[in-house]
């Protein structure tokens, strides 16, 4: 009887794997949750197509793309020219499709009277050159910095684009999740952290700080409009890469991702849709 069951199970799997079309999405860990949510929702829209999502990081996804082992490469940074060239030499033409916009907010405790910061001040706070709020026009209060740990793509993005590749300050605390950053900043009067805007919005104990791109320029809050217009300085596109123009099931999937239904999910996960919904 047991054997019988096993046969049935194997047969079901075999049938399922033959009939269902598989799209593989590999790459960015930042986009992992977004990709998984898209895959889940898409399986409701089109049950006959399975979307297999794996993470590993943008670089790993891009390498997989170059080697031709994934249909879609998800990347939280654009491909470098050297990577595009390498892909071309192996017969893959990198077709770049932005699928969502990500803006990172700088957040402080609500009791902190600080009104705004410049990009340079943010950088110097996180590399440990500024250690007290009175150095940036705030009260005499030591700054306690919180970051994501290196598990996260956001960490790499922040280190490279805000810290300009400098090392983190000695006192930076690295936490396992952005929600933890929200919690710690909420209960530390001198705390400061960064992360997706969605994590910090509408929390009475937190304050999102507007950022001035350069010294002497008006600070800009990371709201939808400013991030989408690229006025807010800490933003990035999230990309899908396909080999040439997408065709067949892959094209259908990407069209759905870019449709209002797909973009709404991007907003739910905490990113911004490419166009106002």
């Amino acid at each position: 009887m047991k054997k019988h069951w096993l046969t049935v199970l194997l047969a079901t799997i075999a049938v399922a794997s033959v009939s269902a079309q598989q799209i593989s999405v590999k790459g960015s860990d930042t986009m992992l949750i977004l990709n998984q949510r898209w895959a889940e929702e898409y399986s409701k829209v089109k049950p006959s197509v399975g979307v297999a999502v794996t993470g590993g990081g943008s670089s790993i996804g891009i390498n997989a793309f170059i080697n031709g082992v994934t249909d879609i490469c998800a990347a939280s940074r654009p491909m470098r020219k050297s990577e595009v060239d390498r892909a071309r030499s192996r017969g893959s033409i990198a077709n770049e499709i932005p699928v969502a916009i990500d803006g990172l907010a700088i957040v402080v405790n609500a009791s902190n009277p600080i009104r705004s910061l410049t990009m340079d001040q943010v950088r110097r706070i996180f590399i440990g050159e500024i250690t007290n709020w009175n150095q940036v026009g705030g009260p005499n209060l030591p700054i306690v910095t919180f970051s994501r740990d290196s598990n996260s793509g956001t960490y790499g993005f922040f280190q490279q684009n805000v810290l300009l590749n400098r090392n983190w300050g000695k006192g930076v605390r690295f936490l396992p999740a952005t929600s933890e950053i929200a919690r710690e900043v909420a209960r530390t009067p001198g705390g400061v952290g960064y992360g997706g805007v969605a994590y910090f919005k509408n929390k009475p104990s937190l304050k999102i700080v507007p950022i001035a791109p350069r010294d002497g320029v008006d600070p800009i809050p990371p709201d939808e409009e400013n991030v989408r217009a690229k006025r807010y300085p800490i933003w990035r596109y999230l990309y899908y890469y396909t080999n040439g123009k997408p065709k067949g099931a892959v094209a259908d999937y990407i069209n759905w991702v870019l449709s209002p239904a797909g973009q709404r999910i991007a907003e739910e996960v905490g990113y911004y849709s490419l166009k106002p919904l």
């Binding site: 990081g57 943008s58 670089s59 939280s76 050297s82 993005f157 490279q160 684009n161 300009l164």
Partner: peptide, 13 residues
């Protein structure tokens, strides 16, 4: 040794 993740504008030739 390894290109790292997320180098954008600073990465361009």
């Amino acid at each position: 040794a390894e290109g790292s993740d997320g180098l954008d504008e600073h990465e361009e030739i």
